[in-house]
Design a binder for these strands. Structure first.
Lengths: 194, 194
DNA sequence: CACCGGAAGTAGACAGCGTCTACGGCGGCT
DNA sequence: AGCCGCCGTAGACGCTGTCTACTTCCGGTG
């Protein structure tokens, strides 16, 4: 679990994560990361050939963090799939709001190399958790489980994105995202049980 | 309608639109736009104090184009609100796929100044069209119209985004976005009529 | 007609960026 | 002892956005 790994590679990623959380995606330059890690601007190149490689490693950390957070939440939630999906969705939105810069980076596919560094492999488990819960909560007349899960994920993601951008508050007049979240869950999974 | 406006301001925006459509968001630098417009790199500053101002003007064009495309589509569609919403949604997804670079730019709030240049005012009419149709299609037990419209928009937007990123095809195994679109519409508006 | 003033675009400078390359230093192996 | 290879340094290059000083030109006034 080398979280306190002392190698330069790990220090660079840690500095990048810290930076993106604090200052947002646009602050995460190679040179700034190197500065914060206390090395010269050329040093990162030894471990990350390009900027994209370093950003991908940082985003990977973000996906891992989000996944961990979801799993932690789910540990304390009772087994009813609908309840668990609600908790998962709430955690997703909270993550996006709390770590806005990281969330942005995670879905900036133009900045990331999703092929190398197994970035996709880090985000898929989360979807698998969601897909599994959706499969349990699915009603017979619903769309196939994979499609239903995809549509629900897209809805969550869209709410997170547009909410952060300020478009949804403006367009709907809402002051928090809870109504939207409930609407999305009700829509895809059927009305909430009492 | 000053599409062939000859003023430098308009030429810069036109060059930027062309560039973002052709090469994507990352290619839209001030200097490159100036080059394509045949002026020096300092010239844009006269009309757009910062890069953000120019990008915002370009994105504005994108919102206007999307809105126009939706309105054109809706002209030929029969008055049933559900049918019209389907057409609107299809147009939204097609636009995102066909003008990927522009679509990206339009929702890169970190690159845009949504306050000045009335950027928001350009995107709101589209939401109003959607909200109006949703209000007509809404069933009595559904969420309030504004919330329902917001949730549906978020779903559309999430599908467009995640599909373009390649996540949804990968996660769901789907090869086109039609199933997802239908799932989203069915979820929010009830099963499609025969 | 002469003049002047402001608007419009030019051109050069600056700091910052990502990338590339040549170089120093140090540890471990033979 | 000597050498090789890894790691990090340092400087250069071309690109970016921004700022500022300058020319050029056109319209209105004396």
């Amino acid at each position: 679990m080398g979280a306190d790994e002392t190698g330069l590679r790990a220090r660079l990623v840690a500095a990048g994560v810290d930076l993106v959380l604090r200052e947002g995606q646009s602050a995460v330059s190679l040179r700034e990361i190197a500065r914060r890690a206390g090395v010269s601007h050329g040093a990162p190149r030894r471990y990350f050939p390009t900027h994209v490689d370093l950003l991908s490693a940082i985003a990977r950390e973000g996906f891992a963090d989000l996944t961990a957070q979801v799993e932690r939440t789910l540990r304390d939630v009772d087994p009813d799939p609908r309840t668990r999906l609600t908790a998962l969705a709430r955690t997703y939105l909270d993550f996006a709001a709390a770590h806005r810069g990281m969330f942005e980076l995670m879905f900036r596919h133009d900045l990331l190399d999703s092929g190398r560094l197994r970035l996709r492999e880090t985000s898929l488990p989360l979807f698998a958790v969601l897909a599994d819960l959706v499969a349990q909560a699915r009603r017979p007349t619903d769309a196939p489980a994979a499609v239903l899960a995809g549509a629900l994920w897209a809805n969550l993601h869209g709410i997170a994105q547009l909410w952060a951008w300020g478009s949804l508050p403006l367009a709907t007049g809402a002051t928090d995202d809870d109504a939207l979240l409930r609407a999305a869950l009700d829509a895809h999974l059927g009305p909430a049980p009492a």
